[in-house]
């Protein structure tokens, strides 16, 4: 019997999906609103080239979630950049095999 395909091709696809579903379930936004916004991002990204259903799709998803959270004053873009860079530094300075944490 064929092994089932993994539900998510990359761990971050799964993390991003779960984060969005969780925020919807806690009432931060309703799903039709999310689908409208996400559809608009996909449409915009898809003007220049044909998007694949993997990284292209989830990059559009991430851009949409960042925009929604920024509009709701829950995560402003400068703060997201700063913490993203802090995570990068943490990965770069954590010995291989040790848990990576923000300092």
């Amino acid at each position: 019997m064929k092994r089932p395909e993994p539900a998510f091709a990359e761990p971050w696809h799964a993390q991003l999906f779960a984060l969005t579903v969780h925020l919807n379930e806690t009432g931060l936004f309703d799903w039709p609103h999310w689908a409208d916004r996400f559809s608009a991002t996909l449409k915009r990204h898809g003007v220049a080239r044909e998007l694949n259903g993997g990284d292209d799709y989830f990059n559009a998803w991430l851009e949409t979630l960042e925009a929604v959270l920024s509009e709701q004053s829950l995560a402003d873009p400068a703060q997201v950049d700063r913490i993203r860079n802090a995570w990068e530094q943490a990965y770069m300075t954590t010995p291989h095999g040790a848990p990576v944490r923000l300092i």
């Binding site: 995560a75 913490i83 990965y91 990576v100």
Partner: peptide
């Protein structure tokens, strides 16, 4: 000898998780 750096979007997702 550092940890494997995740791709950019993975770091951005981690940043959102940290903030929230």
């Amino acid at each position: 000898d550092h940890s494997v750096l995740p791709p950019d979007p993975a770091l951005r997702v981690k940043a959102l998780e940290t903030i929230l």
